[in-house]
């Protein structure tokens, strides 16, 4: 009886804590957004963060995109050849990448590459009192440290997703056309006939922008909220990756339900 009461109590405490954190995270996001002008007035700070979260993620994004596209090419061919519809390979590769895999996989990679780095960096700056030191110099750490990182991540994400999709399609082309020998003209023309600019490309970009916002928000918040110890920072880093992954997949479902309903 006591054990059940304790279990209920701990579940309740966790739920309340979760709601509390969500509220604080929202206030933190608003505070960060209110410092947007300062992040763009001093563009060099934001450019620096685009370098750290965007440029440094380039390799993993491009290489993964290429391989995902190549796998899609192989698997897609294997499936389509049974229906004698191999010329639809381009459509299959392009639509899967542009609508789903591009934004989602790029965001997952971005969360583990850039998101975790942002959390660890801010967490360590907090643990070593660098944020307090800044605050005591009358420089708001949310404006100077958090806002540029936030915008750097938000701006990088759609570009990374676009590169992921583009290299993925090239990977599909490589396997489908160059290796297996699907007709090149069919590959591209079928793709162009089926992929719609507004319904597919623009929606994919919107998706990746939303994911970028969510991941960077989680990353800066976890870093800023991390207990100022080595253990605290490491837990916060793990939590960034796990929470981001869950949020990306949940948001993907919601956005897909909104965007593609009744079109496909």
């Amino acid at each position: 009886m006591n054990a059940i009461a304790n279990l209920l109590r701990s579940i309740g405490a966790r739920a309340i804590d979760g709601v509390w954190r969500l509220g604080f995270a929202t206030r933190f996001l608003l505070a960060t957004l209110s410092h947007t002008p300062s992040a763009f007035r001093r563009l060099s700070l934001t450019v620096r963060e685009v370098y750290f979260s965007g440029v440094l993620s380039l390799t993993i994004i491009v290489v993964s995109g290429l391989f995902v596209g190549m796998v899609l090419g192989l698997q897609g061919y294997d499936t389509l050849v049974r229906f004698g519809a191999t010329e639809a390979l381009g459509v299959l590769v392009a639509l899967s990448l542009v609508r789903e895999l591009g934004p989602v996989v790029a965001a997952l990679l971005f969360a583990s590459r850039a998101g975790s780095a942002i959390t660890a960096e801010i967490g360590l700056m907090k643990a070593t009192e660098q944020l307090d030191a800044m605050d005591m110099m009358a420089i708001d750490p949310v404006a100077r440290v958090v806002a540029p990182r936030f915008w750097g991540g938000v701006l990088s994400m759609p570009l990374l997703a676009a590169m992921f999709s583009a290299t993925g399609i090239l990977g599909g082309y490589l396997v489908g056309v160059v290796l297996i020998g699907v007709d090149s003209g069919q590959f591209w023309s079928q793709m162009q006939n089926s992929v719609d600019f507004r319904a597919d490309i623009v929606n994919g970009v919107i998706k990746s922008a939303v994911f970028g916002l969510a991941v960077t928000w989680i990353a800066v918040f976890e870093g800023y909220e991390a207990p100022p110890t080595a253990e605290g920072v490491s837990r916060a880093t793990t939590r960034t990756v796990v929470t981001s992954a869950l949020v990306i997949l949940a948001l993907d479902f919601i956005l897909t339900a909104f965007m593609f309903r009744g079109i496909g």
Partner: peptide
Amino acid sequence: KQAEIYRLRRRMSMLFQFGALFT
């Protein structure tokens, strides 16, 4: 308010325990 505290802080400074240099 925070802004007024920041105005006063520009006349003071603090040395933290382990220096808190920006790494």
